[in-house]
Nucleic acid binder design. Structure first.
Length: 473
RNA sequence: GGCGCUAUCGUCUAGAGGCCUAGGACAGGUGGUUCUCAGCCAUCAGACCGGGGUUCGAAUCCCCGUAGCGCUGCCA
């Protein structure tokens, strides 16, 4: 049975990199009908926060990456890690270290000032019993260091293939800090063992940590999981992801009007390509097609244009009925409407959504475009006025058109078009002249959906009302 | 500094020694449809990091460079 985990540290947001790692774990679990486990790695008490934890869970929930077990909080298991560290000391795989972090920092700084590199020299391993008990009596804090055995550590990464590191390049790392709290290496391995994790799928930043952790598995006498290291997402400048780019919460994307499925496609398609010509996958398709072998090794740069396109595709694929609730929600949030429309009013709103759907890529696009339909308070675009309302002929034509409209009994798309074109023909002008002018008068911008649709939706009365404002412009 | 990982159009990628004159998608250019925008259709431009090998043949394998990233924390 496949068991994978997502193990974020609540010292930061669930950003797009973490969300993608989580997605790949989730897809792998669902593909293999295994379990997806959530673990919160909050052993760094000072920097972890409950608020971050909540945000991470909320982000996962929004994306729909439901977990099967957990969340397990490492901060609640400190005793377990401590015991396991002692166990290794007993086995001779680890030893007490009385060096203070400040002392170590000093030695490193000394060395680097001479242009050298200092690495832990095992001085506490060589301590005599008397020296040790003296330190103990002094109440000097002691850490536990892992005794890195000689040899070469090799493993086969599911994405990268064979990776090997000589253990002489690994220094005796700390397992348990002076304050009794575990370090990452200890807690992650203990929990991966206890939770029966079969596949460790995480970011490439852990590739160099893996040999250390393999050594730990061996010291504990536990079987190794398989490892798969995902290429890290880069920012648009090809540099490491930073706050300038995507290291804000994934929830930010929800605020900006993206759908989870678009987000999921966007995340998955950085490194993953199922090979088909398709671009927007359903969850089911992603689960079915997913495999670690199809992941590429190189770091992708994230490109928001692609996300916009994906979201736009999703919106155009959605039916008006599916889409409308989200749009209404957004209109409410923007205080454009007070409550969800119902009855006849709702039909009108559905037509509006239909009109705006093709030209929208995010839910956030709707309020702005919907505004001219919902309020007579129009912001006239100055450039548009210059371009479309300065023709002298309009002074005479528009009142005539207004009268044409006023006489109409059935103000429908077809009829409006008929009337307008007839008027243009009579006057010997292009219909476009009237159309552009009308658009400016009625919506205030040179861009909108087809004018006849717009007019029908706005209605005869309001259309005329807005046309009458003309002389004041 | 040491160690490790990576390297195909601007971006995401296809490519597992001959199918590659390197394919697709996003973004961009042009044209068409049209009342504008979007869309749709058509079309154009655009890449194998550099150098050496191996091989009849290399984007694909090997080596060396270069660059980027990661680790080198009593952070995770």
């Amino acid at each position: 049975m496949v068991r994978v985990r997502f193990a974020p540290s609540p010292t930061g947001y669930l950003h797009i990199g973490a969300a993608r790692t989580s997605l790949f774990n989730w897809l792998f679990a669902r593909h293999h009908k295994g379990k997806f486990i959530l673990r919160i790695e909050d052993t760094d008490l000072a920097r972890s926060s409950e608020e971050m934890s909540r945000g991470i869970l909320e982000g996962l929930n929004w994306l729909g990456l439901e977990w099967d077990e957990g969340p397990l909080y490492q901060s609640e298991r400190i005793d377990v890690y401590r015991k396991r560290a002692e166990e290794l000391v007993g086995k001779g795989c680890a030893y007490n270290c009385f060096c203070l972090p400040e002392e170590i920092r000093e030695r490193k700084e000394m060395a680097s000032s001479r242009g050298e590199y200092w690495e832990y020299d095992r001085r506490c391993l060589k301590l005599s019993e008397r020296e040790k008990s003296k330190f103990e009596e002094e109440g000097r804090p002691k850490a536990i260091r892992f005794l890195v055995p000689e040899g070469e550590i090799r493993y086969s990464d599911l994405i990268h293939g064979p990776i090997s590191v000589a253990s002489k390049n690994i220094e005796d790392f700390v397992l348990l800090r002076g304050d009794g709290l575990p370090t990452y290496h200890l807690s992650v391995v203990v929990d991966d063992i206890e939770q029966g994790i079969t596949h460790v799928i995480r970011g490439d930043d852990h590739i160099s940590n893996t040999p250390k952790q393999i050594l730990l598995y061996k010291a504990f006498g536990s079987p190794l999981p398989q490892f798969a290291h995902l290429a890290l997402i880069l920012g648009p400048d090809k540099k490491k992801l930073s706050k300038r780019h995507g290291v804000t919460s994934i929830l930010q994307f929800r605020e900006e009007g993206y759908f989870p499925l678009a987000m999921l496609n966007f995340l998955a398609q950085m490194s993953w390509s199922p090979g088909e010509e398709k671009r927007l996958y359903s969850l089911g398709e992603m689960i079915k097609e997913f495999s670690l072998e199809k992941l590429s090794k190189g770091s992708p740069v994230f490109d928001l244009d692609k996300l916009d396109w994906l979201n736009g595709q999703l919106i155009s694929q959605m039916s008006v009925d599916e889409l409308a609730p989200y749009v209404f929600e957004e209109l409410k949030r923007e205080n454009i409407i007070q409550s969800e429309p119902s009855g006849k009013k709702k039909d009108w709103y559905l037509k509006l959504v239909e009109l705006l759907k093709e030209r929208s890529r995010k839910i956030k696009d709707f309020p702005l475009r919907a505004k001219p339909f919902l309020s007579g308070d129009i912001d006239y675009d100055p450039a548009g006025i210059e371009k479309y309302l300065r023709d002298e002929r309009l002074e005479e034509l528009l009142p005539k058109l207004r009268e044409d409209f006023a006489r109409m009994e059935s103000f429908t798309v077809e009829n409006i078009e008929k009337v307008l074109r007839l008027r243009a023909e009579k006057e010997g002008v292009k219909a476009a002249l009237l159309i552009h002018a009308l658009r400016m008068l009625v919506v205030g911008t040179p861009v909108s959906p087809g004018i006849f649709d717009v007019l029908e939706l706005i209605g005869k009365e309001k259309t005329i009302e807005r046309m009458d404002k003309f002389p004041e412009i």
